[in-house]
Amino acid sequence: MRFIIVILILLSAGCSTIGEPFSLAVPPKEDKALVYLFRDNISQGGASRSHFKIDGDPIMSIWNSGYTWVHLTEGIHTFESSAINDTFTIPLVLEKGKTYYLGVNQDRYSYFVANVFKQYEEKEALEILKGCNYVVIPNKANKPIKQD
């Protein structure tokens, strides 16, 4: 019986992000915007990761309750999130000095649940982010990169 309980704990932990609890990111330099990317604790599809791309470049994958941030130059950027059979794209014009919140969550309907990737208002995003853990963006050698 103990063995089954240990296995269940390990399986449920494997679907969550391990990292430091949420804290505000380093403010961007004057010529950059700050973008938070996060995934709430979703139920359906929670055992798979959300894969994020910025301008077509793979950035990272995040499990449930994970987040990261990046400083980007102002202008048009394309953000993509994909998991299992869902791919979502958000084109966004970033302005220097501003903060943006993009997250994966689920909308619940009477008969089904649908994954969504959308831009959040600050207040709602910060409520979600309070329950998230930080994930370092890896480079191609899978080592942390500086997020200036």
Rank of each mutant, 00 (worst) to 15 (best):
L92E: 07
F112V: 06
S43L: 14
Y134D: 00
I54D: 05
N64L: 03
L94T: 00
G14W: 00
G75D: 09
N139E: 02
A25D: 02
K98T: 09
D148S: 09
L129S: 04
L129M: 06
I128M: 12
I54C: 05
F112H: 11
G75I: 08
V26H: 09
M1Y: 11
E95V: 08
M1H: 13
P28Q: 07
P138F: 02
G103L: 08
F112S: 13
A114N: 14
D57L: 12
I42L: 11
I76R: 12
N64G: 04
R49W: 02
Y100K: 08
Y101G: 05
P28M: 06
A13S: 06
K123D: 14
L10P: 01
E121N: 13
T78G: 07
V6L: 14
Y100Q: 10
I42A: 08
T87E: 12
I59A: 10
P21A: 13
M60H: 04
N41G: 10
I137P: 00
D57K: 12
K118C: 11
D86T: 15
I76T: 11
Y36N: 01
A47C: 04
G46I: 09
L37W: 05
T99F: 10
L126W: 11
S12N: 14
N139I: 01
A83Y: 13
L126Y: 10
C132M: 03
S81V: 08
N105P: 03
E20A: 12
I137V: 05
E124V: 12
D40L: 06
V35C: 04
C132W: 01
S81T: 07
R108D: 09
G14D: 00
F117W: 13
Q147G: 07
Y134N: 00
D40C: 06
H71A: 01
N41T: 11
N115S: 15
S61Q: 05
L8T: 08
Y101M: 07
V93D: 10
K123T: 15
N115W: 12
Y67G: 01
R108C: 06
I84L: 14
F117Y: 15
P138C: 03
I128T: 15
T78P: 06
E124Y: 12
S81K: 04
S23T: 13
K98H: 12
F38Q: 00
C15N: 09
